[in-house]
Design a protein around this nucleic acid. Structure first.
Lengths: 203, 203, 203, 203
DNA sequence: GATGAATGAGGATTCATTCAT
DNA sequence: TATGAATGAATCCTCATTCAT
């Protein structure tokens, strides 16, 4: 499957109606997570995922039209948790508190399963998946939070993108090095983020 | 080639002594860069590289014991330029100037061939390559520069790692979005880095 | 590979330059013929063809970008012989002789390897291959021969198409029934063709 | 399912006694026709047929022991209409009229759903089905008609086979080219058939 | 009877690597 | 040394068929 190949289905093949199916789908996605975590990209193949999920390869393809669709589903599953956190942050009155909460959530999530998070970050960037996993609302919501925290900021959209990128960079690298002290990491992330905002805020 | 596979040679097979060989090796490495840039991981295969380099696949294997060795060579080539910049920075007297210079160099390099840079950043993280492309001196030198810029900083090693990671994060993301305004990007990177240092410096 | 799938390469992958390659290509095509003949469509898979040719599956794909390309090559090989016969017929002065010669050639060819001929006739009709195996010159040349044999014929193009179709129909069916008496078959084919022309000629 | 595989049931699994079953069976067969027509062999799979029929795949297998049995049923359904026409022809007193009527019926039927007809003609030839869809009576009846039309014909059995084959050849090809003018096509078919008979009749 | 989830053998294709020439 | 033909393990994916519910 080449990069320019006209897309193929990346959405789940069928909404699993029976409860049995739902379990199967969840099992496959979690198996994908585990395989990716344990074997890296090299070992991340559909047969391994099916085997780890305890289902046949045929079942996997009943629910996902292809490997990429499975990856997308996994990314979405992980993204969802963050979404919820963003919503919580948005509900806060104080902008700075909201941003702080968000950073904590990001650190927590990324350090929960660091390798998985890092590998999925990479997958997200693949041209074949990019459209499917784009998160416009997420960025909009983050922009909104920044506006509240630093009302006078000149370009909150750019700031949102930069902050996403730098947080991801710092936390992924920390996870890769095996860091586990979340408090310390959170402290540094806050330092980076608020430092960035302080220095770019008053354009 | 599995992640746990007992390593294989990742060093160039022979120090090309003859000038013709040197050219060949350079041509292969540049071809690898171009293929990676143009086709992404999906199209990055040894046959394509050999073809683009205008040499036979057999010749490629004469100079590189395997695909990973080729990747490593490419990473090293890109790293070298940065090395030189770090050396220049180290020669500067004023610590802040040195750091500023370094950030500029990083931005410049990363935005020169943004996609290549980003893909190589990913490759660097692969377990199979990590040992071969580790850059202890680089980190040490950067740490040294930070020490000079912020003498009282509590943990310059951690700072060096974080700064590497955040700069890479910001610049890779900017490249991916197609940004080309280096001055603006540099400004933001400086904001992030000096903001981080300001907030973590006085432990 | 669906019927509407945007085409894929159907031309041989590389013009085999070395003599060794040429042999390999020929061996693969003949193996394809034999497998198709012996096993029918059901057994006609690339692995079987490679095995029968005594080459690895990889070699097959070095020369043919896909299964269909192999089929096309086989069809072309068979077509070529007929082409030559049409050329010979075209060189004849007497139109009826030319047509008679052509019919004989068609019968001979089709009865040489009857099952292969019949299965390839079917393959030719597959939408995925149709464009690649179209034979406009062949039809043009046949039309020309008909014009010479029956100068006053109202619509020689239609006649050419009909004659192709009926000859193919009769001979394929005869082959399927295991007929081997070429003279008798040829006699009947001539009866059909000249009967058709006699009855449609004077529009 | 290989060509030599010891046969499997090709007859419908149960004579559907209840009216509801009969409808279901008919729906499945018509769905098979539509799928074959619309997607060609590539898309002709049991799941697609069941879906198009609006029944579950399980139900399909309740009525047909396998895919081939479904194909056979479809072929039989199409054959039946022709059977009736042959019977009508047989009831005619004048042999030539009978033959003419038969040809018209053949053209009409084949041009009704040309693609379906052509694909079923191919399926009929598959060794796995051949025995199940042989039509000895049909050929016998046709032979009878020929005998009446051309009493002195030397080998009416051979003629019957040839005529079947050439009519099928001409009409299938016409359908493939998208012809729709039935009168013109019928005229040419008559020309071919009566021409053939005229030229072979007086052995 | 009907359903549709599950199965897994089978088949197409890729690509890193070797080795005879 | 260079070449490029050959290799085959690995991987993706399909679809006829079964069977528990």
């Amino acid at each position: 499957m080449n990069e320019r190949t006209p897309k193929k289905g990346l959405r789940p093949r069928k909404a699993p109606s029976q409860p049995r199916s739902e379990e199967t789908v969840a099992a496959i996605i979690e198996a994908a997570a585990q395989v990716l975590e344990a074997e890296g990209f090299d070992g991340f193949n559909t047969n391994a995922v099916a085997a780890r999920a305890g289902v046949s390869i045929g079942s996997l393809y009943q629910y996902f039209p292809g490997k990429d669709a499975l990856t997308v589903a996994l990314i979405r599953r992980e993204m969802k948790r963050f979404y919820d956190d963003v919503a919580i942050a948005l509900a806060m009155h104080n902008g700075e508190d909201a941003l702080t909460y968000l950073l904590g959530a990001a650190v927590r999530q990324q350090l929960q399963r660091p390798r998985l998070a890092r590998l999925l970050d990479i997958e997200e960037g693949r041209p074949a998946l990019r459209d499917e996993v784009a998160k416009p609302e997420l960025e909009q919501m983050t922009t909104e939070i920044i506006k509240r925290a630093i009302p006078q900021h000149a370009s909150p959209e750019v700031a949102a993108a930069d902050l996403f990128a730098m947080v991801r960079g710092i936390v992924d690298a920390a996870g890769e090095r095996g860091e586990t002290d979340m408090a310390y990491l959170e402290y540094r992330v806050r330092a980076a983020v608020f430092g960035y905002l302080a220095n770019t805020g008053t354009a």
